[in-house]
Write a protein that binds this DNA or RNA. Structure first.
Lengths: 153, 153
DNA sequence: TTCGATGCAAATAGTTTGCATTCTA
DNA sequence: TAGAATGCAAACTATTTGCATCGAA
């Protein structure tokens, strides 16, 4: 039995801000205010926050933390495997904790993002792997379409 | 039997540059040099060309056709249903003729785009529709992952 | 000869980078 | 106090828009 592409990326077990910061320190990094607030924001809001929105969140407490700092920290947290981003069609990338693994369905009409359980991607993953040798990563993906409300409207 | 979301968008039957331009004229539009060259480029290269690349293509013949003109024309052709675009992760959007309907698999590592037959998306479409009321549009979607070469490398 | 289309420049959104300064460990 | 991280400004990429001019019908 081969390893499923659905579980190909091992995600560190982190359930709290402090655990993430411990991970950061273990790598030689430092626990700064910006870092702590960013991680807190990621824990507070489940997902689908853009860098800009996360910056706003963080700035509510610490007004002069810059967006570029948020970007740099998100990059770092992604390297640590704590954070994941997804590109959702037109708009900016969105970020969430890597533990909250799900796919993304994005409505072309109203822009709403729906979290999709990974099970929806199973058949696609199997076929893509078998026929094309391609290992699907549903977490980074955005599947466009039309949401229920916009369909019936 | 309900209408499948996979065939929800009717695509005009256009097999040549002139047919597209006729469509444009029928709508009160004009057959300009820029338009003709752009449509030609779309017919020549199957797909996955960004606006920038299409501009370069067109500029090989007519050097001072501007990118903004290409964007405006792509928008217009999309309104006519002749052209489709897809967002492929990080990079720019890519455009192709709407008759060439396919999904997109994008390698996160090397950036290669693979055309995927719509059949791969059938199970995902059915489940998304049944469970979430969401009509998947595989043509506009990019599914991220890892291609065969990068996996085995 | 009209009005749709173009060229150009400038605006915009999202993201990245260089550099001097600050602050954690 | 060394070096990691930050703030700020500026660069960069992809795309859109305003406006005067041009050209297809």
């Amino acid at each position: 039995m081969s390893r499923s592409p659905l579980v190909s990326t091992p995600v560190p077990e982190v359930d709290s801000v402090d655990e993430v910061l411990a991970l950061v320190r273990a790598r030689g990094g430092r626990a700064t205010t910006a870092r702590r607030l960013l991680v807190q924001a990621l824990f507070d809001h489940g997902g689908h926050l853009s860098a800009e929105e996360l910056a706003a969140e963080v700035q509510a407490t610490s007004p002069d933390i810059h967006v570029s700092t948020v970007y740099r920290n998100l990059e770092e947290l992604e390297r640590l495997g704590v954070v994941t981003h997804a590109h959702l069609g037109h708009g900016p990338a969105t970020f969430h904790l890597a533990t909250r693994r799900h796919g993304h369905l994005v409505c072309e009409e109203c822009g709403t993002t729906i979290e999709a359980p990974l099970s929806l991607f199973e058949s696609l993953s199997k076929q893509a792997s078998a026929k094309l040798g391609f290992a699907v990563d549903p977490v980074h993906s955005a599947v466009m379409g039309r949401c229920r409300r916009c369909r019936t409207r």
